[in-house]
Design a protein around this nucleic acid. Structure first.
Lengths: 338, 338
DNA sequence: TTGAAAGCGCTACCAA
DNA sequence: TTGGTAGCGCTTTCAA
């Protein structure tokens, strides 16, 4: 069934049906009613493909994120969910593209075949060829996170440096002197993954500033790795009394390792970091952490993208979020406070 | 840039370009080369909208999942990830639709506007109006899970009844006599959510068969509810020595509640259930559980859908998975075994 | 082996 | 206030 069918049955022309539906041209109340009635009766809906072809907009946004193998983090999920809903609220669909790099087929399809009006890029790297490419062809996109040169871009992100610094200061204030940093997987750090890099930077600087003895570790995104990482930490420096982590997926493993090593949290070991709230709350005791506002980031990203799409040529806007640390139960006084 | 441009530069007709690209008609080696060269030079890719309009296929699959209102579980996360990647592997994109009910706008857009060739439906209910609707209009879809009448449908699912029964038998074999069942949220059970219903059914039957004293609970999808639920369990029957759960998100809370009540897992309380492996491994001790093969389900669903799309009219196929229980550390001998 | 042209279903311009 | 019609960019049939 197509628009011609409707026109026929309503006894008007196809253009009139189109206008009656879109409201882009005045239509007499009389015809409008008749058209709507036929449309309702037949359950007619205009074909998205035809419409996209005709007016050059697909009403679809792309969400680009690296294929994670099997490991999507809870934060990513929250984020995807909020993006879908924000897009739906604006009558846009969301097309998923598992693409870490510019050359991925799926990425090429998304852009080359013009399947989407604009895109949101997750998991930004400091040097990101996807960002470079999209910028160079002036394709409308919003990044989640900042590259090394965030000045002239559209993005919404977290100030990982400040967040991790805040964690370190919190621990230092509590009297901890020997602390560890549990980062995301090494491969992510090496490839310049933003949060891993900026988080590490914040940790190193704040630790130096406070004169702490600090060690940094990379840790794969699963519980087993978290446990192993914790063992390494205590092996390398048994006097370590606290850690900061960005690694949500390893959290349970870190706790397990601590329990196995006979360390009580927070009594003789403090744990903190940057983690989505609902993950911070799954461990016992609950994690004192800077809560990643994944849902808010998703909404902001969609807002920015729609704004960019509606006003081509506007100068770039961005949002840098610095959520506060939520005090829960995983940090306590360190040795010097005793 | 369009196909006409390519044709012009290659000195051939538009149809020849089309055929040179699709290979659906023999083209002389000579012209084929020339066309390809121009295409590569200009980085030409045919417009997805135009192609979709012309041949009636969008090369896009839809994934219909419930609104995030209450957040997603880890299993859903794994599942979505595997579906995206399986689709990408077959050169199909994935369109997300946060849709609960038949009347949902986004659901209508996806199907009514023919944005996708087929769909995968998550979170099936025993009586599911989405399934009924799609079946009645003969729209190609695959369900994740079975409705009450699974005979004539395309689906991939888990045998929750058998899985939970296996858990109960495992506990009974260990000598537990008083057991509890921690289900998904009450609202899901009430609305006929498949896993909640079938799981409950399996629990009740197996418990009766083994002559166990059994209580069943609903529990919201978060750690705090898990903790509260456990308190209720011990309050209702302090002699309870084991529980079976389907509720991944509550798991951490259940453990916390047990710890607070002074119960050692597995020494004086056993915990088991149906949970994705990587979540079973985040708690201490690791959960003995039937591992939900979320990734495999995702792959299977995409396989089925592609099969259905490629062979319209084929008789329905399905996969019922019954993964074994993985023995980890959370179950131990019950009172009668002592 | 290739080209011309008729759609696919819609939007929007030009006339009336 | 309405209708006719020319695209949008591709695929595919019909002819050559």
């Amino acid at each position: 069934m197509n628009i011609g069918e409707i026109a026929l049955r309503a006894g008007v022309s196809r253009s009139t049906v189109s206008y009656a539906l879109s409201g882009k041209r005045p239509v007499s109340e009389e015809t409008r009613r008749r058209v709507k009635q036929v449309v309702d009766e037949l359950g007619y809906r205009p074909s998205a493909s035809a419409r996209a072809l005709a007016n050059g907009r697909t009403s679809t946004l792309g969400l680009v994120f690296p294929p994670a193998g099997n490991h999507y983090t809870g934060m990513q999920l929250d984020f995807i969910g909020s993006v879908v809903e924000a897009a739906a609220a604006r009558d846009h669909d969301l097309l998923l593209s598992p693409s870490g790099v510019d050359s991925d087929r799926s990425f090429q399809r998304l852009l080359g075949e013009r399947r989407v009006d604009g895109a949101i890029l997750m998991e930004i790297r400091l040097e990101d060829d996807r960002v470079d490419h999209l910028t160079s062809v002036d394709f409308p996109f919003v990044a989640i996170g900042r590259t090394a040169h965030p000045e002239r871009g559209w993005w919404a992100g977290l100030d990982h440096t400040a967040l991790v610094e805040a964690c370190v200061h919190h621990l230092a204030d509590l009297g901890h002197r020997r602390v560890a940093f549990v980062n995301r997987p090494e491969q992510l750090l090496r490839t310049g993954y933003e949060s891993a890099r900026r988080g590490l930077e914040g940790f190193t600087e704040a630790a130096a500033e406070r004169g702490l003895t600090a060690r940094t570790y990379c840790c794969d995104d699963d519980a087993a790795s978290g446990r192993a990482c914790l063992q390494r930490i205590l092996h390398d420096d048994p006097a370590t009394t606290a850690l900061v982590t960005l690694n949500e997926a390893a959290l349970g493993g870190l706790y397990r390792g601590l329990a196995e090593a006979g360390r009580q949290v927070p009594h003789d070991f403090s744990v903190t970091g940057v983690v989505a709230a609902r993950w911070a709350e799954t461990v016992t005791p609950q994690l004192t952490a800077a809560d990643v506002p994944a849902a808010e980031l998703g909404r902001l990203a969609v807002d920015l993208l729609m704004e960019r799409l509606d006003n081509p040529g506007t100068s770039p806007r961005n949002h840098l979020l610095v959520p506060p640390i939520s005090l829960r139960g995983s940090t306590g006084p360190g040795p010097t406070a005793l």
